[in-house]
């Protein structure tokens, strides 16, 4: 629940501003880290998607196999989803990076108005990227599922082919583990984006209340 103090003392104001600046920086760092993790994982997911698709298409060329076809299709789907995931995350990162630059340029929280301006910028960034964040949530889930499915396919394929050699079996298990790892990352990432959205939705609600007070000054226009 948001509330606005009526008349804070000077000490409270100074304390609040340094609290806001610390929180602002922590949040910006957390969100940037989340985006960087996503950039890395989407890159890995793209590479994995291509590798799976190419390996299974090659196998298909030497002989028809439904499982190879399914794995190559999942690889292509994973690659496409991962590429869209990467593009969406880079879009988000670009906006956050601009705000970080502005913070550095304006010497951050030395001026409370600069800090309020940066908060307004971050609010505008969230408003403008609500759809992108929802898309990232969907894409990461879909990509995560694709890679988990691929991991299962790889293990199934290995079992059905009756792989007796150690090297082949170890390779299949390693490929499945990598797929499960990327899949787990894809499935767990949405939780953080949902958390970020929740924080900002609450703040946007607070901004609506703030607007009511501001409209009292500007004559409600």
């Amino acid at each position: 629940m948001l509330y606005f103090n009526a008349t804070p003392s000077l000490h409270e104001v100074i304390e609040m501003e340094s609290g806001v600046e610390d929180k602002f920086l922590r949040e910006l760092r957390s969100f940037s880290s989340l985006l960087l993790i996503n950039i890395a994982f989407s890159g890995v997911a793209m590479a994995l998607g291509v590798a799976l698709a190419v390996a299974n298409i090659q196998a298909l060329l030497s002989g028809w196999n439904a499982l190879n076809l399914a794995v190559s299709a999942a690889g292509v789907a994973g690659f496409v989803l991962a590429m869209r995931w990467l593009v969406s995350v880079v879009e988000l990162f670009d906006g956050v990076d601009e705000i970080r630059d502005e913070y550095a340029r304006e010497n951050g929280g030395k001026d409370r108005r600069v800090l309020a301006g940066l908060v307004a910028r971050l609010a505008a960034h969230y408003r403008s990227n609500r759809k992108t964040i929802s898309r990232v949530i969907l894409l990461t889930r879909a990509a995560g599922l694709c890679f988990v499915a691929n991991g299962v396919f790889v293990l199934l394929q290995s079992a059905l082919n009756g792989q007796a050699e150690w090297a082949g079996l170890a390779g299949a298990v390693a490929a499945a583990v990598v797929n499960f790892g990327v899949g787990a990352a894809g499935l767990s990432v949405p939780r953080f984006f949902i958390g970020y959205s929740r924080c900002w939705e609450e703040r946007l609600e607070g901004i609506s209340h703030a607007e009511e007070r501001l409209s009292g000054l500007t004559g409600g226009e």
Partner: peptide, 19 residues
Amino acid sequence: ELFTKLYLELYENSPEFKI
């Protein structure tokens, strides 16, 4: 002044995003 105060307060009084 009112804008600055309201935006700083609402940011401070809202939950923090952490990973």
